[in-house]
Structures are given as structure tokens and as C-alpha cells.
Design a protein around this nucleic acid. Structure first.
Lengths: 229, 229
DNA sequence: TATTGTCAAATCGTTCAACGATCCTTATGT
DNA sequence: ACATAAGGATCGTTGAACGATTTGACAATA
């Protein structure tokens, strides 16, 4: 069993979703989503209906429905009469994403005084998962676990809609992270920072945790804006 | 000129969007969205492809694409093999929506210290629009303008993604408000509260404004949860 | 050389018809 | 009353076709 806890949980959730009854359009969207977030398709790349129809052996209308699904998730950009493109994020996109993260994540942390033990347990688990992946040199898994940490941060707020918004934001962020050439150099410093934030929350110091998180997000933003400029 | 400022601006934006080149699927989605938010279709009502195909004289695939668009906006609920339904919000939905609003709107207000004059101007305009509509007894327009106020609150954060999230949240809320039998009784008390919040922000008292907003949202939530129980 | 016009190819957006799958309602049997 | 089967409605998908739009190549012109 070499998979990290968070990664295994993600995979299990994804597999469960596929076991549920889903339409073909949703399954096509799932395949394409994987390809996008794994970098098989590059940001800016145009996805043409024809090759996907052939490749996945489905009809064009089904592919179009899948494109609609992914366009709303902001992974694809639909341009009328020109097709759909994998979203290419600009420095301005990064700035906007971090403005959103700063507002939502820090507010969730500030509200976290009196959080349920479950919320903290999820954060703890994400920190552990990231540290395990780092110990094994799996740096992209470290990035994934770090994102799990942030999902757990927002989940402290206890709102399904916020959780969904954060899932989508993190999917977009995955595209952002594709631009970082050295996953280790990017993700490694955040391990210690996650642990610090967790420590503050565990002590009940929500304001301290929020301050740390603000610094964390500011630093990550600076790096990513630079990588996208 | 009897239209409120906010309403006219909304209409202009909507008309500009329609003047842009749009696909038929998007135009169908637009028509359906109007019907949903105006209560032509009731919450819980099932939208069948056939009658819409006949009514709008478009093909089924186009209607299906429009359904996909609206499902992601959470105005419709897509159920595999059973069709799509206008979303019926439960008391739990209301609670979740207000949890999200509390976190995002109050954080946006707390961050508002040092807001640009434009942000405050938009709030001011929304308050004026609501008051004008109230003076003319147009209570549903009061609700619309109140929502414009909240959109402007979130816009203080200066994030396009947060703005988009709020637009969608307010679209959902419009469904929630359909359950209120007496628009006047529901919307009227919030006029004065909006003005108070605006006053605090104008004085630079962001924390005071956030406290008022928290009370406002708690009261609205209580009323709406009751109406959905 | 740069710009403009024309044409062909590619492909997108939509329509239509058809078929299989699924769900719901109705009818029948115990 | 409950269980089962059948029929009808409609959803999900497929595939073919056509018109609309965009793009790229090439020729003509200044």
C-alpha cells in the first residue's frame, strides 16, 4: 500500500463516482478532466471533437455535452464556432484566484474557533499525507495533498456550496501548478507552513492561523504570478 | 424613465449579452433561465425536452445542451434517465446558502477598509434603487435591488471569480425568495438595514458593518428557513 | 514586399430520425 | 394489499446531413 491517504481517498471517491450510474457524457467529461489535470492536454491546446469521438468511440453530441460540463468547470474555454481550448491561465487569473482564496480560506480559518474535531482531523490527515509523499520523493503527490489541506481548510466552514467552489478552484489551480517546472522546489516549503497552521488551529489560535495562511498565500501567489509572467 | 438604475443596468447587460454572437443553446438557456427566475416554472417542476423543443422550435440536442448549462448554474437538477427539474430548495439548502453568504459577504465587508470609491458608489446606488422601488410599491424590484446590494458587497473584494460565484448564489436565492408570499413584508425591513450597513462602511467602520450584516443575514435566514419548513 | 480578395477544406452548431435503455403508470394476478 | 408484467413516455445516445463559420493557402494588385 504505497498510496497516500488523501490520494487513496480521492481515487476511491472518483471510482465510486464512476461506479454510480453516470451518463456517457459525464464519463467522457471525467476522462477529459483527467487528461487536462494530468497535463496530457496543454494549457491553450484546442480540443477538437473529431479525434475525441474516434478515440473514445462515442458520438459527437456526447462529446459536446462533455465539453459543456468542463467549460463550466473552467477547465475548458468554449469559443463559438472555433471550438474549445484548455484554459490557459494568466498572471491576472492567478491574482484573482488568490484573492478568492485569501478571502475564503482565511475567513474559514478565522471562523474555525470551536471547529469540530472532524475538521481538524482532516487537516491533520492532509498534513501527514503530504509529509509521507515528501519522504518518498513523490512531489506531485505532495502538491495534491497540499491541495487536500486547503480543501479541508474551507471544509471547516461546513458549507457544501463552499466545498464545491473550492473543488473547482483547486481544479483550476492544478492547471496553474502545471507551469511550475520543479514540483519539489515549489511544494516543499509549504509542508512546514501547513504544519504550523495546523498547530495554531489545534491550540485554538484561529487568528494566528489566519495570519500564517495569509503569508502562505501571498508567497505562493508571488511565485505563481512570476511563473505566469 | 421608470426603471431603477440597477434594473436598467442589468437589462442592458443582458441585452448586450444577447447582441453578442451566441449559440442557440445559450439562447435557449437564457430563455429558460428567465422563465425559472420569474416563476413561470415552479420549483420542483420537471422540464421535459419535447414541449420545449416544440415551443422554441429548436432541436432536442440543443435543448439538452441548454439543460447542461442551467444544471451547472444550479437552477436545474439533472437526474439521469428521469429528466431535469427546477431546483427546489430545502431548509437545508437555505442554511447552506446563508453559511456561504455569511462567510463571503462578511469577509468582503471586513476587508473593505480602504475600499475604492467605486465600490461604495455601487452600494449607494443599489440602496437608492431599492428605496425608489419601495416608494413606488414595486416590491419585487426591491428584492432585485437588494440582491444588487449584496452583489456589490462581494464586489468590494475585487475578484471576478467571487463575483461570478455571487451571481450564481443570487440566482439560486431568487428561487428561495419565490417561496415568500408577501414580497413587501419580506423585503421592506432590509431597506433600512442596507442603509445602516452602507453608513458604517462610509464611515470606514468595516467591523461594525460586518456585525450588522451578520445580524441581517441571520434574520433573513431565519425567515427563509421557516418559509421552507 | 505588403495587402487584399477568393476559394477550398476543416470543423463547428444544429437538425433530424432512429434505436435502445430506463422509468413510471396501468393492468392483472395472487 | 402486494407483486409482477406490460405498455407508453421519454431520456440518452448514435449517426448522417446540412448550413455557418473560421482558417489557411494562393493569386492578384498596389
Amino acid at each position: 500500500m504505497t498510496e497516500t491517504g488523501v490520494r487513496a481517498a480521492d481515487r476511491l471517491a472518483a471510482e465510486r463516482a464512476m461506479l454510480d450510474r453516470t451518463s456517457t457524457a459525464e464519463r467522457v467529461a471525467w476522462v477529459l478532466r483527467q487528461r487536462i489535470t494530468e497535463g496530457v492536454y496543454e494549457p491553450g491546446e484546442r480540443l477538437s471533437e473529431g479525434p475525441i469521438v474516434d478515440d473514445l468511440d462515442v458520438s459527437r453530441n456526447t462529446v459536446r455535452e462533455a465539453f459543456r460540463l468542463l467549460s463550466h468547470e473552467r477547465l475548458l474555454v468554449h469559443e463559438l464556432n472555433r471550438g474549445v481550448f484548455v484554459r490557459r491561465l494568466t498572471a491576472a487569473d492567478v491574482t484573482d484566484l488568490y484573492r478568492l482564496r485569501r478571502l475564503v480560506e482565511c475567513a474559514a480559518v478565522r471562523q474555525a474557533a470551536g471547529s469540530s474535531p472532524d475538521g481538524l482531523a482532516a487537516l491533520r490527515e492532509a498534513v501527514h499525507a503530504a509529509e509521507r509523499a515528501a519522504a518518498e520523493g513523490r512531489w506531485e503527490d505532495v502538491g495534491t495533498a497540499n491541495m487536500g489541506f486547503h480543501r479541508a481548510v474551507v471544509a471547516l466552514a461546513g458549507s457544501e456550496r463552499l466545498d464545491q467552489m473550492m473543488r473547482q478552484t483547486l481544479a483550476e489551480l492544478r492547471l496553474v501548478f502545471l507551469a511550475m517546472r520543479n514540483p519539489r522546489a515549489f511544494h516543499e516549503p509549504y509542508l512546514a507552513r501547513n504544519r504550523e497552521i495546523l498547530g495554531r488551529l489545534t491550540e485554538g489560535d484561529a487568528e494566528g492561523a489566519a495570519r500564517l495562511l495569509e503569508g502562505y498565500l501571498a508567497e505562493a501567489e508571488r511565485q505563481l504570478v512570476e511563473a505566469h509572467s
